[in-house]
Amino acid sequence: MTEHTDPTDGQAVVFITGAARRIGAEIARTFHQAGYRVVIHCHRSRTDADALALQLNEIRAGSTSVVSADLTDEHALSGLGDAVLSCHQRLDVLVNNASSFYPTPLPSLTQVQWLDLMNSNARAGLFLAQQLAPALSTTAGSIINLTDINVSRGMAEFSAYTMAKAALGAMTRSLARELAPRVRVNAVSPGAILWPEHTQASAAQDAEQAGIISGIPLGRLGTPADIARTVLFLARDATYITGQNIRVDGGRALG
């Protein structure tokens, strides 16, 4: 029975969805620095993904690969697991980070929006787990899902998004039971880390952001590195933790 590989031997492999930019890219850098080989997934950000892979491969040749797929496309998703395994012929960690995020006020919510948010945030993670569970079982690996502290708090005008993230949280707990004892499954729930890219600068927006920060006991935004280090901990060090969700939110969920 093969045990989890020490990443410092240059063999362990992590696959991160939505890893070309922002938090996903920081997770890729963090795992790479820890000795993992990295498979970066992207969809529309291929230029950014290739630039990140080039940067990491300059540090350690042959250590990083890129796969591209639309996670909301059933055909593209069905072949993604094989594409990932073809990069390094093994897998130790699956990080389901990719996510669509935008408001869906109830009066204007559409079926297309619902499907996009559910597919990118929940369905993709489930079917990637299905495709990659045998490889992860071989390496005694793990799955880490990126959820959101607002699943339990609720978000006005974001019902479809929070429902999709809630589904991902439920999947985390169920797969932790189903894939034990060979594969651990956990989640990380970021709080306020980066402002959404669709945010428009304005006095009202500045006031809203200041209000959010005032409600964080630690008094500041988190950083992508805060999330990446937590994901690495769950993958590499937390060998007796499964089915759990770690909030990385500066205490915001306290109330």
Rank of each mutant, 00 (worst) to 15 (best):
E3K: 03
H4P: 01
T5Y: 02
D6K: 01
D6H: 05
P7H: 10
T8A: 12
T8G: 09
D9I: 07
F15I: 06
I16K: 02
A19D: 11
A19S: 14
R22W: 09
G24Y: 13
A28Y: 01
A28M: 05
H32M: 03
Q33I: 01
Y36N: 07
R37E: 04
D50W: 08
A51P: 12
L52E: 13
A53W: 14
L56H: 15
N57P: 12
R60E: 14
R60T: 15
R60Q: 15
A61P: 11
G62W: 14
T72Y: 00
E74G: 00
S78W: 06
G81Y: 10
V84W: 02
C87T: 07
H88G: 00
H88Q: 01
D92Q: 00
D92G: 09
V93C: 11
V93W: 04
L94E: 07
L94T: 07
N96G: 05
N97G: 09
P105R: 04
P105L: 02
P105T: 06
L109F: 08
T110M: 13
W114L: 13
L115G: 01
D116I: 01
L117M: 14
L117W: 09
N119I: 03
N119R: 14
A122V: 04
A122R: 05
G125Y: 10
L128C: 09
L132M: 05
L132V: 04
A133R: 05
P134L: 08
A135V: 02
A135T: 07
L136K: 06
L136R: 04
L136Y: 04
T138W: 01
T139N: 14
G141S: 09
L146C: 00
L146H: 02
D148E: 08
D148N: 08
I149Y: 01
N150S: 14
N150Y: 12
A156G: 12
F158Q: 06
S159P: 00
A164G: 07
A166N: 05
G169N: 12
G169T: 08
L175Q: 06
L175M: 11
E178S: 12
R182W: 10
V188E: 11
S189L: 08
S189M: 08
S189Y: 06
A192I: 01
I193K: 09
L194V: 05
P196N: 03
E197P: 04
Q200S: 02
A201Q: 10
A203T: 11
E208T: 03
Q209R: 10
G211K: 03
G222R: 02
P224M: 06
T230G: 09
V231E: 13
F233P: 02
R236F: 03
I241V: 15
R247C: 13
V248K: 04
R252V: 01
A253S: 15
A253V: 13
